Amino acid sequence: MTPCFREQQRFSDPGQEPPPEWTAPTPPHGFPAQPLQTAPPVPPAPPVTGPSAADPPPELPPQTSPVPLPAPYLDLSTVALLGQPKQAPTRGWRRWLYLGTFKLVNLGESPEVTSQTTLIEEAGRPLRGCYRIAVLSLKGGVGKTTVTATLGATFASTRGDRVIAVDANPDRGTLSQKVPLETPATVRHLLRDAEGITSYSDVRRYTSQGPSRLEVLASESDPAVSKAFSSSDYARTVEVLERYYSLVLTDCGTGMLHSAMAAVLAKADVLIVVSSGSVDGARSASATLDWLDAHGHQDLVRNAVAVVNAVRPRSGKVDLQKVVDHFSRRCRAVLQVPFDPHLEEGAEISLERLKPATRQALLELAAVVARDFPAPGHPAN
């Protein structure tokens, strides 16, 4: 027979006195601390002489999940708060439709305008420090000086910083003839007074500026001067200019062995090799790359930009696509500049007088060159 609850003494009588330890006073210094029970020391494991197939694999420590980062604050930029307004069309039938519907139908810009806007943004890429561009060719008459002047004018008209072109031709250069002449000073005068140049206004006394804001530093044209423009002269010139200009373009001579070429190649961040659309022009440009490869400038050749410049109307049977394919295998990019009657004049250059196709080609050339600009926070060499 199962005993009852009272017999099992599972409940106590409320009237019964509590045990004495329940009512005992607390010691003045508290209860004595009980010693912690620690595991006995583990003897060191014997040295392992080699892995055994019977041994279990070692246990890896548990992987802890990464602490979640706090949620970022809401972006308070103008675009985030007000949205990106749709750009109204600026030309073509889209513009007429936009105005004809009292600005109710806005189809946005055409793909052509959007592409040109992208090229302008690339050409105007922010640049920290000074970036040096050298334009060269072994053959004369291929439009090397014209490419220097038009590319510099394109950069100067699309950017907000200062752009200058230097005539480093040891012979009588013609770069100064591409802009209105404002001063008879040359690079010789700049070097003579280099110690006293402490500001941009001091340099401006030796340069001429065109409508595009491109400045040109002329070479020595006095036939009585017999001293050649040496490598040290060019290095000192660039040392002065790079303190006040973001882009320095150099119009090199046709010879690769003249004294200034060593400093030009040492200072250049990118090379632009100019070729005409003729057979001898293409061969001379390719020979220029061969000479650079043979003299330890392989990196400059791989990063170079080849320009096939049409110095005359297309009348021959040269396959320009094969010329482009040849240089595309050796250089970073190849671009073609079409023939333009304004450039054929050989006088001062005005971008407004160029054909739209020529201006588009020069803008593409500027964008290609600008893609090699150092990233923000990494100044140019």
Rank of each mutant, 00 (worst) to 15 (best):
L214T: 01
G277D: 14
G255D: 15
S199F: 02
G255M: 06
Y200I: 11
T207W: 00
K178L: 07
A235G: 11
S226D: 13
R188T: 14
V270Y: 00
A194K: 13
L271H: 04
P223T: 14
S286A: 14
T198D: 12
P184F: 03
E182F: 01
L247M: 10
T288H: 05
F229P: 11
R236L: 11
T186A: 00
G277C: 11
Y200E: 10
K178V: 06
R188P: 00
P180E: 12
K178P: 00
R283M: 11
L191C: 03
P184E: 10
T250W: 00
S208T: 13
A260L: 01
E215M: 06
P184V: 08
A194T: 07
T183D: 02
D251H: 03
W291E: 12
S246Q: 14
M256V: 14
T183C: 03
S199I: 01
R283Q: 13
G277W: 00
A260K: 00
S231D: 15
Q177C: 05
T183H: 01
K267R: 13
E239C: 03
E215T: 07
D193E: 14
V203Y: 00
T237I: 06
E182S: 04
D251E: 08
D269G: 04
P223K: 08
L214F: 08
A260M: 01
V203D: 02
S221P: 10
D222W: 07
W291N: 08
E239D: 15
R188I: 07
A282R: 05
D193F: 06
T250P: 00
S286D: 15
A235T: 15
S286C: 03
L214K: 04
K227W: 08
T198P: 00
A266H: 11
L191N: 14
K227G: 11
E242V: 08
R213K: 11
L289P: 11
Y200Q: 06
V203M: 03
R188D: 12
T198L: 04
C252K: 01
V203Q: 01
R283N: 12
T288R: 01
S176W: 02
S276A: 12
G196N: 14
E239K: 07
L247V: 13
D280H: 03
V179N: 07
G210S: 07
R188G: 10
E239S: 12
A224Y: 12
G253N: 08
S276L: 06
A263S: 15
V216I: 15
A218W: 01
A266T: 14
M256S: 10
L249Y: 00
V216P: 04
D280W: 03
S232F: 09
R243H: 13
D269C: 03
D290L: 07
A218F: 04
G277R: 06
S246G: 13
D290M: 04
P223H: 11
P180D: 12
L265F: 10
G196V: 04
D280M: 07
A262L: 09
S199E: 12
A266Q: 14
S226H: 11
K267L: 12
M261T: 14
A235V: 09
A224H: 13
R236G: 03
P184Q: 04
G281K: 07
V273N: 12
L214Y: 09
S231T: 14
T207V: 15
